[in-house]
Design a protein around this nucleic acid. Structure first.
Length: 448
RNA sequence: GCCGGGGUGGCCGAGCGGCCCAAGGCGCGGGACUGGAGAUCCCGUCCCCGUCAAGGGGGCGUGGGUUCAAAUCCCACCCCCGGCGCCA
């Protein structure tokens, strides 16, 4: 068919080498592929030819008289043995070819920056006024800020010490590090943020969905790359099931092996799910609090689009999330991820980063990728165009709101000196119907 | 989890060891006919190799096996439907 990476490899290998260089990956992968591809095609032909003569024999045998048939059976036996050997070779070549092809990252869009050592992303735009302590403020450029005397309390201490609505110590004892208990107002906040995001996005035509939280190996291997798999994914002991690391995985799998017609696209989904991540590559980073944890909740946008429309959708879904964050009043910036830092599936990726005044830095809250046909190829999701042509669809994903992490941003950005946290106005309508939920402010709990 | 029924091309559906390199229908695409549409008639409509050729190969839920030969027989697994059990 027309998988863009395969096409590029065969018709323009130099371009693929450039992509690999930009991604800081091994360029020799291209020649490796061309080699295994050529061998596979060669063997494919040999096998087809052998089978042809074999089939002819077999058909002849069906009609032959008993005596002639014995002869044919004899010949067929010999041929079969030879076929088996070549078929084994073909099988091996095919396995190898797929392995190399599957290890290929996506091509990259021309607007993706190629960056020097130490630079992972390029700011595109920013919004909001950040609170910065003196020395931090000096380092900020192109961002509006107000200078504050001292940085506010970090989200972890806010949640656990000041508000007393989280317990990561007990969670650590019973489940391990990077787990948490959340209580009281923070629970309501998590739900309200989810419903806020779902409500806004469904108004824009996205279909709400709760996907399966686990997928079979054969499916999950098609929606993500090896690095994600080994660093992020939990396996269920004794079952062929893996916990999803994001709703994206479950939603992408929804159209597994589907053939669509043009009129069925685009398809917009907004999913909610818990996300399970091993955080194996994270080391000791962000061990405190609930910033980087094994389980969290997230609302996710997912788009299946026609190939020629995916770049427009990429901007669109990024703006959707910006708007959600802006209306909460959280200062953010959008960065364009450098080629070397893109995951294999993404042809381009924007991260949306929130300002964390206690940390004095922007931290990732959302991530929006155009995966083009990388996932669709692996999942076999195609669209039949007018005139009978068939192509792979494009898929895109973009965080709506990572609700658990959004809580940490709210705790740092909206806390007052007295330890009270102001609830963003946009969120209040979603807390209103809940009797026990806080409405305007979150007050520290009197007794732990 | 147990017992029973079932999974055939986009959909419906025949076939149940060689006459099937899967009938027929619907849908879809192209053409003929028409002033145009409909009806009718022809051709095409799973995947792969090949120059979108000639030609060839594979494919009947998935993976193994029996056989010179498997959609068809055997085994395992997956999924769907019905019944029982269990459960928020």
């Amino acid at each position: 068919m027309s998988y863009s990476v395969l096409e590029a490899l065969r018709s323009n290998p130099d371009h693929v080498r450039k992509v690999l260089t930009a991604r800081r990956l091994d360029v020799s992968l291209v020649d490796k592929f061309l080699e295994v591809d050529a061998r596979w095609r060669q063997l494919r032909r040999e096998v087809d030819e052998l089978r042809h003569t074999y089939n002819q024999l077999s058909r002849e045998g069906a009609k032959a008289q008993p005596e002639r048939r014995r002869e044919i059976v004899e010949k067929a036996r010999e041929l079969a043995a030879r076929l088996e050997r070549v078929e084994k070779e073909l099988e091996e070549a095919e396995r190898l070819r797929e392995e190399v092809l599957w290890s290929m990252p996506n091509l990259i869009h021309e607007s993706v920056p190629i960056c020097p050592e130490g630079v992972d992303s390029v700011p595109v735009r920013s919004w909001g006024v950040v609170k910065a302590a003196g020395d931090v403020a000096a380092s900020l450029k192109g961002v509006e800020y107000v200078v504050v005397e001292k940085p506010p309390v970090g989200h972890a201490d806010m949640a656990e010490v000041v508000l007393k609505m989280a317990d990561t110590l007990k969670a650590g004892e019973v489940a391990g590090s990077r787990f948490y208990y959340l209580f009281d107002d923070l629970v309501w906040l998590d739900f309200a943020l989810a419903i806020y995001a779902l409500d806004r996005l469904t108004q824009r035509g996205f279909r709400p969905v709760i996907p399966p939280y686990m997928l079979k190996f054969d499916v999950i291997r098609r929606v993500l790359d090896f690095d994600t798999f080994k660093d992020a994914i939990y396996k269920i002991e004794g079952e062929d099931l893996y916990l999803i690391a994001t709703a994206e995985h479950g939603i992408a799998a929804y159209l597994y092996r589907r053939d669509l017609v043009e009129e069925e696209l685009p398809q917009l989904y907004v999913g909610w799910s818990p996300c399970f991540r091993k955080e194996a590559g994270a080391g000791n980073r962000d061990l405190k609090g609930i910033f980087r944890v094994h389980i969290f909740h997230k609302v996710e946008q997912f788009v299946y689009s026609l190939p020629e429309e995916s770049w427009r959708w990429h901007e669109e879904i990024t703006k959707n999330t910006e708007e959600l964050i802006r209306d909460l009043g959280l200062p953010y910036r959008v960065v364009n991820i450098c080629a070397h830092d893109l995951g294999a599936p993404a042809a381009k990726k924007y991260d949306i980063e929130i300002w964390y005044p206690a940390q004095g830095m922007y931290r990732e809250l959302a991530s929006c990728s155009n995966v083009t046909d990388w996932q669709a190829y692996r999942l076999g999701i195609r669209v039949t165009r007018k005139g009978m042509k068939r192509e792979f669809v494009h898929t895109l994903n973009c965080t709506g709101l990572a609700t658990t992490r959004t809580i940490t941003a709210i705790l740092e950005n909206f806390q007052r000196e007295d330890g009270v946290v102001e609830i963003p106005k946009a969120l209040r309508p979603y807390l209103e119907p809940l009797k026990a939920a806080p409405k305007d402010y979150i007050y520290p709990r009197k007794r732990g």
